[in-house]
C-alpha cells in the first residue's frame, strides 16, 4: 500500500467548494475511500448530507461519474450500473476496468435502505458499499435512527421528565451485513485513515460485494468543537464502542485491541453535548447500561475473532 506522501500525488476525486459543515467527517472518509483504487470509479450516493452538500446545482464536487437516485436505493442504483457495465463490457462497448462504489448514511443504510442493500449483497454485484455512520438523521435536522446510541439526545429522542434520550441500543449493522457471507466486510474509523484506505483497497479488490461501515463524527449532531472530529472517532474506538475489525471470507479479524487501555464509555460521552444529560447523577444508570452493552458486544466480537 502507498504511504500518505505517495497518495498525495494521486488525483483528487472530491473537489473543494462543497458545502459540508466545517469539520465534517463525511468528506474525510469519502476522500480516503476513493483512494482505495486507481481504477476509474462510478459512485452512487444515497440522499443525505454528503449528497446534498456536494451537488448543489449547478455545482458538483465530484470529479468521478456520480449518481444520486433517492434515499433508500443507493445499493439498487449501483446494482443497475454494475449490471449495465457487465453487459456493455461483454458486448465490447467498454473495455476499461471500472469499479463501483455506493455511499449511504446510517439513515440510508441501517434504516430505509437496508432492504435495497441486503438485496444487492445477496445478488452478489461487484461493488463496494460504504456506510457513513454519523448516528442519526443529521441532514433532516438530527433525528434518531437505528444507529443512534443508547441514551443519546436527538430531536426525536428528546430528554425530558420521563424519557432521557434514545431508549434502544444501536443496531449492529456490520454483523447484519456479515451475515450475508459476502467476501469482505469491515468496520473502520476516520481517525485511522491508513487502516481505512487499506480496507477500501481490499474492498475494491475482492470480486463480489464488499461493505465498510465507517463511523463519521458529526459536529452539529453530536455537538462538539469542530476541530475534534478525529479525536471523537478515536475515542469511539478506544472505548471499544466502535471496534475496528474485518470479516474476510467469513473469517473475523480484530484490527485493534486497546487491551488494558480500553477507556470507559463515559470518556467518549463527555466529549459530546448530545450526552450532556447523562452526566447528571440521576442518570448514571443509563451510562452503566450503555457500558454493559459496549462490554458485552466487545467480548462477543473478541470471541468471533478468536481472542475471547
Amino acid at each position: 500500500m502507498a504511504n500518505i506522501r505517495e497518495l498525495a500525488l494521486t488525483n483528487e476525486r472530491l473537489a473543494p467548494g462543497h458545502r459540508l459543515c466545517p469539520g465534517c467527517g463525511l468528506s474525510i472518509i469519502a476522500r480516503a475511500v476513493m483512494r482505495g483504487t486507481k481504477d476509474p470509479i462510478v459512485v452512487a450516493t444515497a440522499t443525505g448530507c454528503l449528497e446534498v452538500s456536494t451537488t448543489i446545482y449547478p455545482y458538483t464536487a465530484w470529479n468521478v461519474p456520480w449518481i444520486h437516485n433517492a434515499f433508500e436505493n443507493a445499493a439498487a442504483t449501483i446494482s443497475g450500473a454494475e449490471a449495465a457495465y457487465k453487459v456493455l463490457k461483454k458486448k465490447g462497448k467498454i473495455n476499461k476496468e471500472i469499479k463501483f462504489l455506493a455511499f449511504g448514511g446510517d439513515g440510508g443504510t441501517y434504516d430505509i435502505g437496508l432492504q435495497s442493500l441486503s438485496g444487492a449483497l445477496e445478488r452478489g454485484h461487484n461493488f463496494v458499499y460504504v456506510c457513513l455512520d454519523n448516528e442519526g438523521y443529521m441532514n433532516t435536522g438530527i433525528q434518531r435512527s437505528s444507529s443512534t446510541p443508547y441514551g443519546a439526545w436527538t430531536n426525536t429522542s428528546q430528554v425530558g421528565k420521563i424519557h432521557k434520550g434514545k431508549e434502544q441500543f444501536k443496531k449492529d449493522l456490520t454483523a447484519v451485513v456479515a451475515a450475508h457471507h459476502i467476501p469482505y466486510v469491515a468496520q473502520a474509523s476516520s481517525h485511522n485513515y491508513m487502516d481505512l484506505v487499506r480496507k477500501a483497497e481490499k474492498a475494491f479488490a475482492v470480486k463480489g460485494p464488499a461493505f465498510i461501515n465507517v463511523l463519521s463524527p458529526c459536529v452539529p449532531g453530536w455537538k462538539y468543537p469542530m476541530q475534534l472530529t478525529q479525536k471523537l472517532a478515536k475515542m469511539a474506538v478506544d472505548t471499544c464502542f466502535w471496534p475496528l475489525f474485518e470479516v474476510e471470507n467469513d473469517k473475523w479479524i480484530l484490527n485493534y485491541d486497546p487491551g488494558d487501555n480500553k477507556k470507559p464509555i463515559i470518556e467518549w460521552l463527555k466529549m459530546q453535548k448530545r450526552f450532556r444529560h447523562l452526566m447528571k447523577p440521576e442518570n448514571t444508570h443509563i451510562v452503566e447500561q450503555l457500558q454493559k452493552n459496549v462490554d458485552f458486544r466487545w467480548e462477543n466480537l473478541k470471541k468471533l475473532c478468536g481472542k475471547g
Binding site: A76, G80, A81, K93
Partner: peptide
C-alpha cells in the same frame, strides 16, 4: 428484492448507458 429496487436498478442501468 422489490419493485422499488427494480426501478432504481433501471435508473442506474439507464444512466450508465444501457
Amino acid at each position: 428484492e422489490s419493485e422499488h429496487s427494480a426501478m432504481s436498478a433501471c435508473v442506474g442501468a439507464s444512466a450508465s448507458g444501457a
